[in-house]
Amino acid sequence: MRNKIWIVLVGAVIVIGIAGCGDSQNKVQPQYVGTAQSSLTRPFSDMLYGFTKIEKYVSRGDYSSATTISNNLYDEFHDAILPPLQAKKGKTYAEKMDKKYDELGDAIKRKDKAKITELINVNRDNLRHIAPMMGVSLLSF
């Protein structure tokens, strides 16, 4: 009886080791993505998604939430996107993009729906324009 239990346990350990835990047979090859692309994909996606959220909040008249999202995106833009953009295209070019984003924040504070819509479109277009320059693919947006 003990031998049978022992054999079943050893057999189970071997089966589990071969089937579920083996690295060499179940290894998925990583897809190598360039460092710039992998580090910037998330901020670009966050920005584009954030613009959609701002539009929804503004359409509901929830300027407080729109301001919160705008402030968070401002930080992400300045921390993650602006420095490599300056390095790639120069300070003047980057400041031009930054100015349009700053105008969006001001329009939200003024609760100017028409200007918010215009500036979201401008900023969205700017991101779509600079993404390929930065090595970021935005196929889903």
Rank of each mutant, 00 (worst) to 15 (best):
S65K: 11
G61A: 00
A19R: 05
D102W: 13
M47T: 03
K96G: 12
Q29K: 04
F141S: 15
N3V: 14
D75N: 11
Q25I: 15
H78T: 15
D23L: 13
Y57C: 01
S24E: 01
M133A: 03
A131N: 00
R110V: 08
G11E: 08
T92N: 07
N123P: 08
S64H: 08
M47N: 14
I130Q: 01
R60P: 10
K53L: 08
Y32H: 07
E118H: 01
E95R: 15
Y49G: 09
Y49D: 05
N72R: 02
N72V: 06
I18D: 07
M134T: 05
N126D: 06
F51L: 07
Y74M: 09
I81D: 10
M97F: 14
H78K: 07
I14P: 06
A80S: 11
Y49I: 12
A19C: 04
S137E: 02
G90C: 15
V13F: 06
I108M: 00
G61F: 13
M1D: 03
N72F: 12
V33I: 10
F51A: 14
S39T: 06
L127V: 08
G34I: 05
M97G: 05
K100A: 08
A94M: 15
L48Y: 02
S59N: 10
N123R: 10
I14H: 08
K27T: 11
I14W: 06
Q25H: 13
S38Y: 06
A19W: 02
L85E: 02
L40Y: 05
E103C: 02
P83I: 00
V10S: 07
H129W: 11
N26Q: 12
F141W: 01
S137H: 00
K99W: 00
G22K: 07
K113E: 10
I7T: 13
A36F: 04
N123Q: 09
F77A: 15
R110L: 08
Q86F: 03
A80L: 14
D46Q: 12
C21T: 11
F51K: 13
G105I: 04
L85Y: 06
E55Q: 11
V10E: 10
A87R: 11
L119V: 01
I14V: 15
P132T: 02
L138M: 05
D98N: 05
P84Y: 02
H129Y: 09
G34S: 09
I18E: 11
Y63P: 03
A107L: 03
K53Q: 14
Y63F: 13
Y101N: 03
T68E: 07
P30R: 04
S39I: 00
V136Q: 15
K4L: 08
A19D: 13
Q86S: 04
T52N: 10
E118V: 01
N71G: 13
Q37C: 15
W6V: 10
I81W: 09
Y49E: 13
T41C: 01
V136L: 07
T41R: 02
L40S: 11
D62E: 09
D112T: 09
R124G: 01
Y101G: 08
L82F: 03
A12W: 11
F77V: 05
